[in-house]
Design a protein around this nucleic acid. Structure first.
Lengths: 356, 356
DNA sequence: GGTAATCGATAAATCGATTTTTCGCAGTTG
DNA sequence: CAACTGCGAAAAATCGATTTATCGATTACC
């Protein structure tokens, strides 16, 4: 009864011999095949129960071309967005009897491809890929070249080989524009990451189009950092410095991605500006902390659950042999206007300055 | 050249026949065995190159008892802490040629055991388990009963069957006590989650011991929610209401876990209290946003990388047959005292009230 | 020169399932 | 009574590697 060795687990043959049938019969019973005598089926169930037998998924997968494994590749695991995404995907895979193997590409396209190649080695049934850059990266190319089935999510718009699912960021951005214009903002800075060309463009265009539609002479400045987040800090600093020389400053900032929101807040801190008195702020992507800070930060909430659910639906449809041209799906976002957005010039400190 | 079907990948036999040798020889060459004629080895390498052959990890694992798979079970994926942890673990596993399969127990002990059982089905070589509650949960019991090798991290202190690695939260809490006492705080509220008994106790005791040592008549109140975070909101609300009736209020709050810090901030908002003027705040567990808000939130930073590295080192030592009694490792934290901590009574609004 | 040891490589067993093929037996039919 | 049909289950092939046992040819030793 004391500490036992790691006794080797019982295999299907152990069950077979205990039930007095062949391994093939055990396999059939467990697969729910009905052409087995009820009496034998019962004996199998008893043996399974007694031995605590469980199918070895690895051995089980050996003989199928498509294994019961889904690969998920995310740019990173540290943010709430991708954390929730992996969590959702894992649950959905599990529901269908699949195992999810998640890997982080660490925001590197090179690594993304390596990780994907490893998934291919595992002969996964399908892949959910959230590309680092966009749908035209090397990983998607690899998937095409090797006939893998997969679905692209998040930083994608549409693709001619794979289904895509992403947040409708253009619509959300238009909504943000409507809100900011409605509050009276006529000079707005948009910050983003140039790397994610397509997504950034969609968000930017959606914002700009709606803003110009509402107020044709609205001024929209854009500060983009190519691929890294850090340079954005310097770019933003310069932007405000130059503006200060000319005595002009935007009354609102719209950040197209989460880290940008942090950079903006950090820059505001440095200059002693407060939201929304000195400047307004809206960020794409929500986070739990944004509602407890003072001010609470306005944000676009991405529909993580819906994206995950759609992605898995579409993916399994393909795995099960569904064909037809790939579709691009857009899931609607919610825009939460919190305290960080106000009307320009209405705050007590609209001139900026040093509030301690 | 156009879109090809998912042609079946070449197996070791394809390589063998192309190189004009047997599959066994190919296997040996790839495993680095030296008793192969250099000429044949070269032919194998050429064939591998030409066919783009890669070992199928699943088939490769079939014949060994311990498979090249490491399981990681985390309470959740949404927080920075566990996100970073999974990311680190994945990298470390990969470095050793292992695949990491991560799963979330969703803060449920029942699910934790199910997930672990599934890992066992996969016959993983080892498991990194961050238990929902502590080292005495059902999952750890399951691991013992089945002779699995594993390491417990985060919400654990020590165990008689498994190695453990966690942050030295007692020392960090003592450090927090020193800081708060040093700033003049004599009435401090500590909030936490009762579920994680051992960890909470360590943090609480470490804090209380140091505080009492420095100032014997310091007042330390404690508000614990049993297992859920939501009740803490109500408990905290009541606590402050009751204090207000008696005209007393702590000058600082120390939250023993991340969500508690959010709940505290949320409660402060509601009452119109500002940090650090009206009340000081320190939280266990750091997050990226804490340094960009105003005020920046003081926090205990857990050494995620070190914990992950230690956990993997210890785990692989066991996998490679190392024995001896299990060890409990503690990794030192860093305490970042940011603006949310000040001296009591020094702020312009120390009477509390409604600042808008 | 004959037996033994050595070397390199191959055939075969193995891992634990699934799937296809074969087989025995009972009941029907011509 | 021989041939046929069906059913349920066992035997065997398969998946793609690793590992053990075996084998033939060469070298070594007495």
């Amino acid at each position: 009864m004391a500490h036992r060795q790691a006794q080797r687990r019982s295999s299907i043959h152990d069950v077979a011999s205990r039930a007095g049938v062949s391994a093939a019969t055990v396999s059939k019973v467990l697969a729910g095949v009905t052409t087995v005598k009820p009496e034998n089926a019962q004996r199998v169930f008893d043996a399974v129960e007694h031995l605590g037998y469980r199918v070895d998924p690895l051995a089980s997968d050996m003989r199928r071309a498509k294994r019961r494994i889904i690969g998920a590749i995310m740019p990173e695991f540290e943010s709430e967005f991708f954390g929730q995404m992996v969590s959702e995907l894992e649950g959905l895979a599990e529901q269908r009897g699949y195992t999810l193997v998640a890997a982080s590409s660490r925001e590197s396209e090179a690594r993304e491809k390596e990780v994907l190649a490893r998934m291919h080695d595992w002969r996964v049934a399908g892949v959910v890929l959230a590309p680092v850059r966009n749908e035209h990266g090397p990983a998607a190319g690899f998937m095409k070249a090797n006939g893998m089935t997969g679905v692209l999510i998040d930083r994608v718009l549409a693709d001619d080989a794979f289904d895509t699912v992403s947040a409708d960021s253009a619509a959300a951005s238009a909504e943000v524009a409507r809100e900011l214009i409605g509050k009276g903002h006529r000079h707005i800075l948009v910050i983003g990451l140039g790397q994610q060309a397509a997504t950034v463009r969609a968000r930017l265009d959606g914002f700009r189009a709606k803003a110009l539609e509402l107020v044709p002479d609205v001024r929209i400045d854009v500060v983009l950092s190519e691929s890294e987040v850090e340079p954005l800090r310097a770019l933003l600093h310069d932007y405000f410095d130059k503006g200060a020389k000319r005595g002009e400053r935007p009354t609102a900032v719209y950040s197209l991605f989460l880290k940008g929101t942090l950079v903006a807040l950090s820059e505001f801190r440095r200059r002693g500006w407060h939201c929304p008195d000195d400047i307004s702020l809206v960020g794409f992507d929500d986070a739990e902390w944004m509602q407890v800070t003072w001010p609470a930060i306005a944000a676009v909430v991405q529909p993580v659950r819906q994206i995950a659910a759609q992605a898995m639906d579409v993916l399994f449809a393909r795995i099960d042999g569904g064909d037809g041209p790939p579709k691009a799906r857009l899931e609607p976002c919610k825009v939460l206007m919190r305290e960080s957005v106000g009307s320009p010039g209405s705050g007590p400190h609209s001139g900026g300055g040093n509030r301690q």
